[in-house]
Simulated assay, not measured.
Amino acid sequence: MADVAHGGVKTVRIGSMLGDGIGHEIVPATMRVVEAAMEVEKDLRVDWVVLPLGRDAIESEGSPAPDSTIAELKSLDTWILGPHDSASYPEPFRSQLTPGGVVRKTFGLFANIRPAATHPGVRAVSPSMDLVVVRENTEGFYADRNMFLGSGEFMPTPDVALAVGVFTRAACERIAREAFTQARSRRKHVTIVHKTNVLSMTTGLFRDACRTVAEEFPDVTVDEQHIDALTALLVRRGEDFDVIVAENMFGDILSDLAGELSGSLGMAPSLNCSETKAMAQAAHGSAPDIAGKNRANPTALFLSAAMMLDWLGDHDGDTRLSRAARRIRHAVDGALESRVATADLGGRASTSEFAETVLARTLRV
């Protein structure tokens, strides 16, 4: 929990990890916006702890996810993680668990919350979309997340590759409970995603666990969709969906689709969390093709940081943090509505120009 000093001043200690590529541009911009939003609130301060993670950490610490970084994260209230480009790391690091994966596994960040909503001034394929994908973050078909030790992928011969998908009732019920809780604060509608006509035992277990949890939330409407049918429905009538709960890989694909339909993947925020820890991390990657060119859209990380402050405010019972989160969201919407936008949205603003616009609005909203 955040420290409260004499006189009621609250200092929140937030870890900041730049990551790779555009992370070196969007993370510092996000830090400035978060700090401004918090300092507008009376007696609310931030203490940044910048930690190495990613390619720079390989060079300085000998590992993309140094033990010293992981140890320091344990003492902090919450964290911001920039995107990483682990595919470009030298071996053996390229074949190891990604830096973000190390953090997720170490701290049991089982829920990946990914909203997709349209914004004023931004053209969208689905102009009325406002949904949240609640993605199980520890199991499923992703080999970097579904084993305690080692990988879920293996090759018994050079010409045969196998993958193990892991589904446990406890993890499925845990993510379902998160989804139904989210729905209660929204439009009270949950869609369960599965593929039981083919993967009857694995995604069948996921579906059945979600159905069981649904009984605890009689005020929430529940329906189900096969993953392939849902992708088509999102394109055609995305506005019909409220909260979508999915296993790891399905949730990853659906949230990227929804982010693009609602405007741009550069707008798509994400929060990785457990019951006790949370990490802001944009849904997009490190975009090495535009890294260092001052062209990246920082919106997704701004909005991810706002989610992080909301989460911390809920857990600390401090409405000042929730107000700071709203201030960031209003500042982003105001900037976009005034037609200040980066190239991915058809605008001409640089990363720094867009960030300065949001920063100014954060201070006056």
Rank of each mutant, 00 (worst) to 15 (best):
F206S: 14
V245P: 01
T157F: 00
T203H: 07
T118A: 08
R320K: 14
G266Y: 02
L312S: 06
S286C: 12
D130V: 04
L301D: 13
A176S: 14
D85T: 04
H315A: 09
T202N: 09
I80P: 00
H24S: 12
S352N: 14
P218G: 12
S63R: 14
A143M: 09
E260W: 00
D3Q: 15
V213K: 09
D314N: 07
A87H: 08
R211A: 13
C210L: 11
A57G: 10
A355I: 00
G334W: 13
V358R: 05
F250G: 10
G8H: 06
S185K: 15
A111F: 03
R32T: 02
I244V: 15
N146C: 02
L265G: 10
S350Y: 07
T138K: 00
I192E: 02
E224K: 08
V190F: 01
P92C: 08
G317K: 04
L363S: 04
E59R: 14
T319E: 15
H189Q: 09
H119S: 13
N112L: 12
W311I: 10
S88D: 12
V9H: 05
N112S: 13
R211C: 14
V134G: 04
T342M: 10
P127Y: 11
L301I: 10
F110P: 10
V166R: 12
F167P: 05
V222W: 02
V34F: 05
S128C: 06
D344G: 04
I244T: 11
L233E: 14
F180H: 11
R361S: 05
V103N: 07
E353S: 09
S264T: 03
G15F: 05
S75M: 14
D159E: 10
H194D: 12
P298I: 00
W79P: 00
P158H: 01
N112W: 07
V46P: 08
P127G: 01
R135T: 12
V160H: 10
L162F: 08
L257F: 03
S264V: 01
D56C: 08
R236F: 07
I70R: 09
W79E: 10
G21N: 02
S270I: 09
V122I: 15
V160L: 15
E173P: 03
G313H: 01
H24R: 14
R177Q: 06
M1L: 11
T168G: 09
G334T: 05
E25Q: 01
E72R: 15
G165H: 07
L301F: 03
M129S: 01
G108R: 06
D77H: 13
R295E: 02
A87D: 12
E25N: 01
E153F: 10
T202A: 08
E39H: 03
I192N: 05
F167E: 14
A87G: 00
R211Q: 13
A116S: 15
A170I: 04
E356K: 09
P83Y: 00
H194V: 08
A209D: 11
L73K: 10
V34Y: 04
L233V: 05
A214F: 02
T362L: 03
N112A: 15
T181W: 07
R187Q: 13
P269W: 08
D242W: 00
T357F: 01
V34C: 13
I328C: 03
K105V: 07
M279H: 02
H194F: 05
R187A: 12
L312H: 13
G15H: 11
F250K: 11
L230H: 00
D208W: 11
D47N: 15
K10M: 15
A282T: 03
T221Q: 08
D310P: 00
G100S: 15
